[in-house]
Amino acid sequence: MAAGGDHGSPDSYRSPLASRYASPEMCFVFSDRYKFRTWRQLWLWLAEAEQTLGLPITDEQIQEMKSNLENIDFKMAAEEEKRLRHDVMAHVHTFGHCCPKAAGIIHLGATSCYVGDNTDLIILRNALDLLLPKLARVISRLADFAKERASLPTLGFTHFQPAQLTTVGKRCCLWIQDLCMDLQNLKRVRDDLRFRGVKGTTGTQASFLQLFEGDDHKVEQLDKMVTEKAGFKRAFIITGQTYTRKVDIEVLSVLASLGASVHKICTDIRLLANLKEMEEPFEKQQIGSSAMPYKRNPMRSERCCSLARHLMTLVMDPLQTASVQWFERTLDDSANRRICLAEAFLTADTILNTLQNISEGLVVYPKVIERRIRQELPFMATENIIMAMVKAGGSRQDCHEKIRVLSQQAASVVKQEGGDNDLIERIQVDAYFSPIHSQLDHLLDPSSFTGRASQQVQRFLEEEVYPLLKPYESVMKVKAELCL
């Protein structure tokens, strides 16, 4: 049975990233139509530049190519590739079939990587351009969430054990800070992308030097003109047959890092959902379990974690691919890159769409948070109580021993009897502590235990987050809708 299948058929496997999760716009960027249309555009740009620099290419040939950029006979191309065992030459023939007058000058002087690699770089750039505003929107939604809850005390956790208090907004800023680093890295790697350009079979530009009869300047002009037509500021000066596969490492490393950030955020949300302090959106008709109707599973956060793990592992592909590119190139890269580049971007696209949807509907339960604080705060307040007693004339050592005994009794009630923490009640009825009984409410005010959390939130948002989001103001209103 021949390899390949009808990918629109229910009898043929289709990647869930495309069929179930990723956005239509990201799927289109990695589609065959987008790819092969870009090949034709690159052939047109090459012909236009070659004509401008004096090669015998007519206006009629150029116009014929322009008129057929979208006229792609995919069936013919597939048949040609089956016959020739070469995808680029299959599309040269297919393009030439609908451009008979231009057929002889299509791909003039070029090698397969002229269309293959340059198209990949265009796709990487455009895919990054799709991700950047999506990530900015996630940051914006979380920034709104953090600002609104900047002063809401909550129990902090280290080692997932109760620690000092923080605020809900401050905790959210930990998430935002990681995503801001990801946004900066995505922008950097996007701006650092260079075009492969017009380089020939081993990167020496020998074929173009021959076409222009040894004119170095025209060869350099050709490279520059096509690079500018493709919208790049610069091209690699040095290439082998391909652009260095280190570029793929750079791009997928940034995406993998984004995956790590999203995994951490969504894990926190899942843990908070278990504590009943916070939940992701839950639709009115949504079913959490087929057997347990009360369940409210954090399905979206779980999906993000599941896909983020996949995204983090994909960076190993370009690392290994770059390491086995012998001399000017081997074909070890080809099949692998067809999979890992598309999957990385479709996965990143999915987790950003999902995280935006989550961040637009996060639900906080202040009463649950308050109750958990009441359970733990008495123990945390013991040092403040000791200091207040010393100020009232008591002995630190005597007070410490009193607190120690009462704390152990209260802990026994919590752990052995399943009761509430009654340390404060014990202190309130103990005559030894009568000098500070009137101060206990103040000493137990949760806001006095959150330090500068709310001020940190305000400063972080104003100095770091809002300036970073400013270039994306025009796209901030787009909502994230999930079908599944």
Results as ranks from 00 to 15, higher is better:
V364P: 08
E25S: 15
A291F: 03
Q456P: 05
F195Y: 12
G5N: 15
E302G: 04
T354L: 15
W45R: 02
E70A: 13
G214K: 09
T450I: 12
T111Y: 04
F145N: 05
H400Y: 06
C180T: 10
L42Y: 01
E64N: 13
D441Y: 07
L222G: 04
A2L: 13
A110N: 00
T94D: 06
K187Q: 11
F208C: 08
R85Y: 14
Q456N: 05
E328H: 00
K391Y: 10
R329K: 05
I424S: 11
S289M: 04
C305S: 11
A3H: 15
Y243V: 15
I139N: 11
Y466L: 12
T201Q: 04
M316S: 12
G96I: 08
Q205E: 07
M76C: 14
E64I: 07
D215Y: 09
A18R: 07
L423N: 03
D178S: 05
F449E: 03
A143E: 04
G451M: 01
K391N: 13
L255P: 03
R426A: 08
L108S: 14
T244I: 00
E64R: 06
N185F: 05
G203W: 03
A3E: 12
I385Q: 06
F327N: 10
K35H: 12
Q221T: 10
M181G: 08
K35T: 14
W175Q: 11
I237M: 10
M380C: 04
D117G: 02
Q221W: 09
Q184P: 10
E50R: 01
G418H: 01
F36M: 07
P293M: 02
A143L: 06
G214M: 08
L469V: 15
L55A: 02
M89Q: 02
A235L: 11
F208E: 03
T354W: 05
Q161H: 00
A49Y: 00
H107N: 06
L165S: 01
L155G: 01
L46Y: 00
R37Q: 15
Q285S: 12
R309N: 09
W39V: 09
E250G: 13
T94H: 11
R329D: 01
D430F: 03
L307N: 15
C172K: 02
K477E: 13
E79F: 11
D430A: 09
A22Q: 08
A344Q: 04
R188M: 07
P318V: 06
L314I: 09
R40Q: 04
F236W: 12
A127I: 01
E277R: 06
L222D: 07
R194A: 07
G418L: 04
A411E: 04
R329Q: 06
S15K: 08
K170Y: 02
A146Y: 00
V138E: 08
S395N: 12
K224N: 08
K276P: 01
Y114D: 06
L174P: 05
E481P: 14
F433T: 07
H310K: 11
N353L: 12
Q51D: 04
G259D: 06
G214Q: 11
D11V: 08
D192Y: 09
